[in-house]
Design a binder for these strands. Structure first.
Length: 424
DNA sequence: AGTCATGATTTTCA
DNA sequence: TGAAAATCATGACT
């Protein structure tokens, strides 16, 4: 019996080499309950402590001695019996963990943001999504910001993958190490495959919690990057002077119907080096602000009326010199006329427009030579020196349907190269 | 710091 | 779905 106890203490000591709990406590407890004197515990502990001082060779030799001990088979069977009675330590352990919803959420998020998943599609898709969300920002530095965003996302992606790889490598290394250890120990004490499995599960759970932290940090980083990028679109930059002029020219020359069609918006956007949505914003703001305070915009309106009239006159005189003036604005290169005529925005404007305009023919229509002439003539007829009558607007019902198709005015003084100063 | 102008966003509506 | 209206946010100016 003394031999057996010594052997057991040796076994416990050996198992102490591993920092992993492999059921040694059960053995220790059982040993105590088998009636061993209390002081033996002290001996065992001493041996456990002593084993750390032993060299590897000594430990191996000791292990070998234990394995060759004549009582070893007997001890092994006793341990098996003990094990049988203590399977409860294994019982109740869930074999299969349901997938953690938190990890699933993080995974989905990382996939959507282009951090995990296929390299190319993911990152560029996310960048495209952000680009789309940021539509309305300046096209110039927008591309810079997009590339900046992409670069940062790639950086995050790189760090995430390298860290993930490290974790996975460490996890598999540690798992292998523990499994080898357990397999080796299984020669001296009973270790069921299920126990090994359980141990592997514990290790994987530990590592997956670390991975979750990594995923969480990565998600946070992407969110911060994203919010920073998207916040940039709120940063307002004034359009440059030329862009404002172009927009104002269109607005005041189509004051009767300041609703540019999609094509016109695209043309304007191109001319002003801004996006179509910015053009829409501008017209939306302009209409509402003009309507709210017509008086304030009177001077501006006059200014652009004169400007467009003068430009139209000069354009038409050039055209008459060079060509037949019969159809001065049709089909000529640079013409901004649109093919569709009539109601460009059916249903968008109130239908009660009849009689809203006190002087509809006075609308500055500079699309044709005749209209330009008419326009300049009209100014003289206007009383009180008011060049641009605000009457074309019915405040309650908005703008009347124009008899004139919404077309862009000829590119008077069109800026060949408009640069956004904003850099907006 | 206060004010105004103006581009962008959000809400509401037809 | 696009426009109106309200609101936010920022730049420029004083």
């Amino acid at each position: 019996m003394e031999d057996q106890a010594r052997m057991m203490s040796g076994l416990v000591g050996l198992s102490g080499l591993s920092q992993v709990d492999v059921g040694d406590h059960d053995a220790g407890r059982k040993q105590h309950s088998l009636g061993q004197p209390q002081q033996d515990i002290g001996d065992i502990l001493q041996q456990i402590m002593a084993i750390t001082d032993e060299s590897l060779d000594e430990a191996q030799a000791r292990k070998h001695a234990l394995n060759c001990h004549r009582m070893k088979p007997a001890l092994f069977s006793v341990l098996c019996e003990i094990k049988e009675k203590t399977v409860l330590s294994i019982r109740g352990i869930q074999d299969e963990d349901p997938p953690d919803p938190q990890i699933m959420r993080l995974d989905n998020m990382l996939l959507a943001e282009g951090v995990s998943g296929p390299e190319k599609g993911g990152a560029s898709a996310a960048a495209a999504a952000v680009a789309a969300a940021a539509a309305g920002g300046s096209p110039n530095d927008g591309s810079i910001e997009h590339s900046d965003y992409r670069a940062k996302l790639t950086q995050i992606r790189g760090i995430y993958h390298s860290e993930l790889e490290k974790y996975e490598q460490a996890c598999s290394e540690f798992t292998n190490h523990v499994m080898n250890l357990l397999r080796e120990q299984s020669r001296t004490r009973p270790i069921s495959p299920k126990e090994i499995e359980r141990m592997v599960g514990i290790i994987h759970r530990k590592f997956s919690s670390i991975q979750m932290q990594l995923k969480q940090s990565t998600c946070e980083a992407v969110m911060i990057l994203r919010s920073r990028f998207l916040d940039a679109r709120r940063k307002r930059r004034n359009f440059n002077k030329q862009a404002t002029e172009v927009l104002n020219e269109y607005f005041y020359s189509h004051l009767s119907n300041p609703y540019p069609s999609e094509e016109a918006k695209e043309e304007l956007a191109k001319k002003c080096a801004i996006t179509v949505s910015q053009v829409s914003n501008w017209f939306g703001n302009k209409r509402i602000r003009y309507k709210k305070n017509i008086g304030k915009f009177q001077e501006e309106a006059n200014l652009y009326a004169v400007k467009t009239a003068v430009d139209a006159a000069s354009v038409s005189s050039q055209a008459s010199q060079a060509n037949s003036p019969a159809t001065p604005n049709s089909g000529s290169p640079g013409s901004y006329s649109r093919p569709n005529t009539g109601h460009a925005h059916p249903g968008l404007h109130p239908t009660n427009g009849e009689g809203l305009f006190l002087n509809p023919p006075l609308q500055p229509q500079v699309d044709t030579q005749h209209r330009a002439t008419l326009l300049t003539g009209c100014y003289e007829e206007l009383p009180g020196g008011t060049l641009f009558p605000p009457h074309c607007l019915h405040v309650d019902s908005g703008w009347q349907d124009s008899t004139d198709p919404p077309s862009l005015t000829p590119p008077h003084g069109a800026p060949g190269s408009v640069h956004s100063d904003t850099s907006n």
